[in-house]
Design a protein around this nucleic acid. Sequence first.
RNA 1: GUGCCCGUAGCUCAGCUGGAUAGAGCGUUUCCCUCCGAAGGAAAAGGUCGUUGGUUCGAAUCCAAUCGGGCACGCCA
Length: 580
Amino acid sequence: MFSSIRECILGAMRPFLRPGIVASCDEILVEPPKDKTFGDLYTNVAMMFAKRLRVAPKVLAEAVCKALSKNENVSEVSIAGAGFINFRLHNKAWQSVIAEIIGSGNYYSYSNIFNDAPINLEFVSANPTGPLHTGHARNAVFGSVVANLLERVGYKVTREFYINDQGNQIKFLARSMYLRYRETLGDTISEDDFTSDMYCGEYIKDLAKGLVEEHGDKYLNKDESEWLPFFCRYSIDKLMKNVKRDLALLGVVMDKYTSEAKLCERNLVSEALEILKKHGDIYEGILPRPKGITDSDEWEERPQTLFRSTKYGDDIDRAIRKADGTWTYFAGDLAYHLDKIQRGFAKMIAILGADHNGYVKRLKSAVNALSGGHANLEVRLYQLVNFLENGKPVRMSKRAGTFITLKEVVERVGKDVTRYMMISRHHDVMIDFDFVKAVEQSMDNPLFYIQYAYARICSVFRYFEAENGKIDKNELMDCDKSMLSDDAELSLIKALVFWKEQIKSAAIAIEPHRVPAYMQNIASLFHALWNKGKINTDLRFIDTANRKCTIARLSILLATKSILEDGFDIIGVTPMSEMR
RNA sequence: GUGCCCGUAGCUCAGCUGGAUAGAGCGUUUCCCUCCGAAGGAAAAGGUCGUUGGUUCGAAUCCAAUCGGGCACGCCA
């Protein structure tokens, strides 16, 4: 329906186009005005295009106005202010969308505007050195909802987790394991044996116990070279198993796990280096001293292999080889992104914590350079979650093992509340997640408000079907809807119509928090309609004396139910047909 | 010293990429159950959109300064 209106507006402007001046439907804004008294919809094209077309806004507005007034869906048009075009649609036009929503199953929000283009969505990618914590929970929820949104606009999404299963960090993990291993077998270990790079969380003890049970004491009193590889592999395997289990608790399932070590075995780092060399993006050099460091003894000039990332918009060039000749972490990321490019992804998105903000430009540079400009990486940073226990901040340190795990959160407040808390705010805003309040306020949580609307709708259907038997979907689709003309009914229908547009814009902007916000809006309009029926019995959904009217009303409810189910599916929350 | 993010009602936050008189929830005040679920609805009060300039028909939104808060900053991963 909207596309036909946009066509109509564009058509009206076409006579004003001059050679070289183009305009497309995508540029045309059509949306409900803030103030409903202006009309159902408005467009600002007259003002938007006035300058480009060198035509007075009024002249454009009049042409658009004339064209719209001839459109079969439009009932009235007017020009206001500096050139706003306000218009209304016939009730019939709005009512017809109910059938469209019901008829689409729960697929009303789907539009294949990106033609099944493959897209790689990397998220979580937690280091396998410990359990997932609350920060990862936000990452996981954010990523999984983005994936659902991208699928609705026609992307073929690969949800991917990058495992940093090599490097010093992993060695320190293995050494920590070995200390606990010895402890389990009777050696006395003090906290001082753990260096600052090591991990002394409780989970290491548990893992070490398991290792003893499975493999006994055969690694005791052996040289590090004999046990280190095994301890690395063992720890990573177990920890990754737990990572997958925890993600499942949140309803998050990955399509692919990529191992850094495996990429390394394939010599992808060298391959990436060769590609960059060909473009002249590799050189031996010395990085400039950062301006913040004034003390010269804190700074030592070192010649290294550098990637000319400044050529691609980065602030400084980046080291890919340490002074001792080994690869930097970034070198591994070059290999990983080359792997993504080789697998055919021209579009990629990575979800990272805000503490990675200094890393974004070099990653984008890497993708740009390695693909010769054919692939693009978008990065979304999410602010960290401030975890509170009854108003008091919980200090978290992964190394010391004093952090709240994802598992713990889900076990205390449930999957749905956790997901809702993590997704209902803009990713650029810090979240204060208070353990105690999240549970206490569960009744005030907007999630329950939405769940309640859904449960009420289910309740009406239960009530109706108990008397009249199972209702036929086709009957609801095909019924006469002309009596659905109350303001409350039309307001709800209009909100449902815009669901598709909302999902599209949330997906393109990569802003999943808009989804629960819009669901809340729909729930609110539904509750209002419900209560209006309590005051004015003519508006009750079920009128036992008038089946025709009842069926029409139920058709709105089914459409609303369908939209809410789609929304729940996007945000990964289970709808409740009854509230306990 | 540099870069990124945030600053909107007493509190927690929206504000759909520059649109009309600034929007919700919680809290406060007043109403609405003989009724498909009141875990709800209707209404009131509450604002110098951190501050100051600039861009234009038009700014919470864009630009420049500035204040306050968060994050990060050569071989850690």
